[in-house]
């Protein structure tokens, strides 16, 4: 029998999950459940929407209202869910490829609209499910099955992308820093507006093996040694920030939210 948290928030008859040994998506999924539990949300009003990819299996395991949609379109479906029923707490669980490549346009436009959706990106720097192709977040010169000589492309910083597009809460956590991650998720979930948390996850099977990153535990320890909090960034030089992962809060503002605006418009026309 699993722990209380798992029993209360996950579909235990669907576990163990299909993720590989040492894949930290499980740690991120647990952190989401912990945040929902801590906030005391009515679980009947939580809706998890996901697209396609390893990360997107999450909707099958979480025991709330769940919607498993097509590749890259999770945010588009979530927009529909939110507008049809604004009382729901709509969250999108997506991967780096699903979110920033296939669904890149949906991401920036949902951020621009500032619709009340919490987007949680399991960012493992690779397309795991399809066999280790490089993704828009694979660092330069890293290897993938489609980058046998090293990745030539500059990666996306999903946090900066979402913040520039208009998201009102943007943060990054890692699956090593679990308790701080839970706090960031909580803040994103209570934000009225488009919130995004980029969760650095590990893929030992493809990204780790292709780039000789070592054991699953070693990959998690890499986050411990190579992350810098947003609060410290200003004090450091460009050289000191090279190849470091910036974690913490990137943006936290309050702006008028889309469904509120939409309901106001309808009210006006109803007379």
């Amino acid at each position: 029998m699993p722990s209380q948290l798992v029993r209360d928030n996950l579909r235990t008859n669907k576990l163990p999950h299909i993720w590989c040994a040492g894949c930290s998506n499980g740690i991120a999924m647990r952190a989401i459940s912990q945040a929902i539990e801590n906030l005391g949300f009515d679980k009947k009003k939580v809706c998890i929407v996901s697209g396609i990819g390893c990360s997107s299996r999450t909707s099958g395991y979480m025991n709330y209202n769940t919607l498993h949609t097509t590749h890259g379109r999770a945010i588009a479906f979530a927009t529909g869910v939110k507008l049809a029923n604004p009382n729901l707490k709509v969250m999108v669980v997506t991967g780096d490829g699903d979110c920033s490549a296939i669904g890149g346009n949906h991401l920036i436009h949902a951020a621009r609209r500032n619709i009340d959706i919490t987007t949680i990106v399991f960012n493992n720097n690779i397309y795991g499910m399809t066999g280790g192709q490089f993704s828009p977040t694979t660092p330069m010169e890293n290897y993938g099955t489609t980058a046998p000589y090293g990745n030539m492309e500059k990666p996306f910083d999903i946090c900066n992308l979402a913040a520039a597009a208009g998201a009102t809460y943007v943060a990054r956590g890692t699956t090593y820093h679990v308790n701080p991650l839970v706090k960031l998720l909580e803040k994103a979930m209570i934000k009225k507006g488009f919130a995004l948390v980029d969760v650095m996850s590990t893929c030992p099977t493809y990204y780790g093996r292709k780039n000789k990153k070592g054991t699953p535990a070693k990959m998690l320890k890499y986050f411990k040694d190579n992350t810098i909090d947003t609060k410290r960034v200003e004090k450091l030089s460009k050289e000191q920030l090279e190849n470091k992962i910036i974690i913490g809060e990137f943006k936290n503002t309050d702006e008028l939210e889309f469904t509120d605006k939409y309901l106001e418009l309808i009210k006006g026309w109803e007379g």
């Binding site: 722990s3 209380q4 798992v6 996950l10 163990p16 040492g22 679990v178």
Partner: peptide, 13 residues
């Protein structure tokens, strides 16, 4: 162990 077990296989009750 519980905090970082990706498979929920070890925990404190």
């Amino acid at each position: 162990c519980e905090l970082r077990c990706p498979d929920y296989a070890i925990y404190l009750e």
